[in-house]
């Protein structure tokens, strides 16, 4: 669900749909198309759509295909994607209903991977829509059209990523908002917290450096003819010459 949250406004998508409809090429009716049209199941209608096919009730396994991949979705038109979204949404609701009832009855829910497949398909579909939206906006306005993110100082004196949103009244005129969103960074407690936090970060960094250094010594001891370039690339913070000079680095043999 977290993937769904940082999404552009929906009017932007609506523009995208309108645009796509106007640009669609007209195919003559007698042309044989190599592509298969989007097939949907027959509408059973009403609330029974929340349940699986009756032949799948009480079985141990339901065989299904794979989820929709991004490449398959990219070649679909916007209206097809829009229809497919609702097919997937209904499928997910159906699977969740069946899962819940199976749990209630303490029975086996057949093929639970179906839920994952549907969710992967929905994520992929949304990624494709986002992609098209972004391309459209970059072409039209030069911006991505995504929700803007800025870095602000949080209540604990640490920088946090803030997703911008719309306000009816500007911040500098909105006394109520200002009262609510005051972060007293000069507070003694905040200062103490930041100091201790930074101290902890520094300590962790130093310990990691020491660990790496000792590890490099061990490596040099066991493999004296190893590739120094690769070692340097893997441990850029370690002073290899210093490690070589270390007493611990010398093996248990007479040096040549």
């Amino acid at each position: 669900m977290a993937a769904f949250r940082n999404i552009k406004s929906i009017t932007q998508i609506s523009k995208l749909f309108n645009n796509a409809v106007s640009n669609r090429t007209v195919i003559p009716a007698n042309t044989v198309l190599a592509i298969r049209n989007l097939s949907t199941t027959k509408c059973l209608g009403g609330l029974m759509e929340f349940f699986d096919d009756e032949k799948n009730w009480g079985v141990n396994e339901v065989k299904t295909g794979k989820s929709w991949s991004i490449d398959e979705l990219r070649i679909k038109s916007n209206s097809d994607l829009h229809k497919l979204w609702f097919v997937l949404l209904k499928e997910r609701n159906m699977l969740l209903t069946m899962e819940e009832e199976s749990k209630e009855e303490t029975r086996l829910f057949p093929s639970p991977e179906r839920i994952d497949k549907v969710e992967v398909s929905m994520d992929n579909l949304e990624a494709v829509v986002k992609e098209r939206n972004k391309a459209y906006f970059e072409l039209e306005t030069g911006e991505t059209g995504e929700r803007k993110v800025e870095e602000i100082m949080g209540p604990f004196g640490l920088p946090v990523q803030h997703e911008q949103e719309e306000y009816l009244i500007p911040k500098h005129m909105n006394a109520e908002w200002q009262k609510k969103h005051v972060h007293d960074v000069d507070n003694a407690d905040v200062k103490k917290f930041v100091r201790l936090y930074k101290e902890k970060e520094m300590r962790e960094k130093r310990q990691q450096q020491t660990r790496d250094f000792n590890h490099v010594i061990g490596l040099l001891k066991r493999f004296p003819d190893m590739d120094m370039e690769a070692l340097k690339a893997k441990y850029p913070d370690v002073d290899i010459d210093k490690a070589k000079r270390s007493r611990k680095c010398r093996g248990h043999f007479v040096p040549k």
Binding site: M1, I10, F50, H82, L89, N93, M122, E126
Partner: peptide, 11 residues
């Protein structure tokens, strides 16, 4: 356009 709410029909 792309609602992402879920609903389960429960007993």
């Amino acid at each position: 356009f792309l609602p992402n709410f879920w609903m389960k029909l429960v007993r």
